[in-house]
Amino acid sequence: MFAVEEVSTGSGSDYSNSWISWFLSSKGNEYFCEVEEDYILDRFNLTGLNTEVQHYAQALDMITDNLDEEIQDDLRGNLDLQARLLYGLIHARWIVTARGLAKMLEKYKRADFGRCPRVLCQSQPLLPVGLTDVPYEKSVKLYCGRCEDIYSPKSSRHGSIDGAYFGTSFPHLLFLVYPNLIPPKSGPVEIGGAGRSGDVDSSRRSRRVREEQDAQAEGVGEGMSTASVALKADRYRPRIFGFQVNEIAKLQRWQEAVRDRQISRLEELEENA
């Protein structure tokens, strides 16, 4: 008996070095990135989480692989749940730090979060976002930087992830911190084009070519204005036998008039600045 148990627990710790890497590798958790251990061990970063999570101390021990083997049997199931909750909540804080953003950026460039289902977004990679920062309220959604709208994940195993594990701010903070990654409103997706790998590529080309490319194909360049980017956005025009549908066309004209008003407002701001 003992031998069997030892083998099973032994193998349990064998196939993964740590709880975190086990968690990240299990199916359905593809959206999560690895939170650095230093971040978790700094208690300041966990302020307030002890009220959100039951058995906080044990859950934290579980995440950091310091859990005593003896006590786990009776509340193992619940503790596992709480450990996931705790990790999720830490994750929400982590991904809005500089290093967390960088890690999520890598995943974004690999399109780990899927691509925009909107046809005219041309498979723009998505970013996870929550609709609330409170756990157990809303599942995770996916934000498209091109159409600036949110979509439900395709797969149900992602549709059941808590949105609070990513938070409401993350994708917007990402584009605030990396304005050169703001996707262009039209044209094909150049994944990671403006990032590191893209820079390596383009640094081989002449400066002029690179600048041109920054201005056009790739995301919004560092010094570029985004005031009128919306004009480039493609729209779907419903047609019946080639003719636009009256009411929809009217709505779309109204929407574009709203757009034009915003653009003139922004350009005026820029002129005055």
């Binding site: 091109r146 703001i182 980017v229 919306a230 701001l269």
Partner: peptide, 14 residues
Amino acid sequence: ERAKSGPRMLWMRL
């Protein structure tokens, strides 16, 4: 909307 990353596409769903 003054931010470079500010909303540019709200109109499309309004």
